[in-house]
Design a protein around this nucleic acid. Structure first.
Lengths: 136, 136
DNA sequence: TTGCGTGCAAAGGTTTTGCATGGCA
DNA sequence: TGCCATGCAAAACCTTTGCACGCAA
């Protein structure tokens, strides 16, 4: 059965992600973090736990580019999971977390008007950010 | 300099993608296709050419899941794709082209309120389409 | 004690890179 | 002829899996 036991690794991993809501980490970054701690966590365990958290809705997973690894991010309030959106700047590569009520409304619009159940956690908006637009 | 020369591989690759607009292929599928042709195309070349096409806007690239390979799809009318939106179904892989005024309003909202110039041609909304939702 | 979780190492994939060769202009 | 593109093989990565051991309940 799944999630039957609670382990040290499970707790430490989730605690780490909770520390900085909104921040995103790759599996490698997480492993690196715990490598410097008293007790490290095996790579396989990191992936297996993250997979559970994602399934559970506690953590969000998204892909940026091929070759890059997936990013994982703690979801502060599950019910508000769609509370922010990801914008990736094509110039500087920066990932922007955007709070936007207007975008939230789009989700229900896409569903009711177009029948499309949008997975906003997985979607990344590409474009050019404020700073980079000024430089051009 | 980039794209200075025009080669057989370049032409054949683009012709293949053009044959079926709206269909998406992985690099592996493309290589497999040409393996059965008179002249095959090396894997590295496929990736290098696809990268160019994507940069050029001729081909769109999608990431569906980790571990899965990226998908590539020919863009029929480059100029038209800037004006509408793309939804990719995570179940059936279908790409839906969407005309939507609400989304256009969001686009200008992102620019004026958040300073983010959203490139709708490159952005893909992930989710589950109408047909696939019914099947579940 | 039971059986799930962990960690290591190896496997499995995809994508990238180095380098000599081929081919376009 | 000059240089870019190609192809092969190897490398580099990320992620998953098998298996024995550890640990929670």
């Amino acid at each position: 059965m799944k999630g039957a036991y609670r382990t040290r690794q499970q707790d430490e991993l989730l605690d780490y992600l909770k520390q900085t809501p909104g921040a995103h980490y790759t599996a490698a970054q997480i492993r690196e973090h715990f490598a410097h701690q008293e007790k490290s966590i095996g790579t396989a365990t990191i992936y297996r736990q993250l997979e559970r958290f994602v399934e559970d809705g506690t953590v969000r997973k998204y892909l940026l580019d091929t070759g890059d690894s997936a990013c994982y991010e703690y979801v502060a309030q599950k019910e508000l999971c769609a509370s922010h959106f990801h914008c990736k700047c094509e110039k500087c590569g920066r990932l922007i977390h955007l709070e936007c009520d207007e975008l939230k409304q789009i989700q229900s619009h896409l569903l009711t008007a177009h029948g499309f159940a949008w997975n906003s956690g997985k979607t990344v908006f590409y474009g050019v950010c404020d700073q980079c637009r000024k430089q051009i």
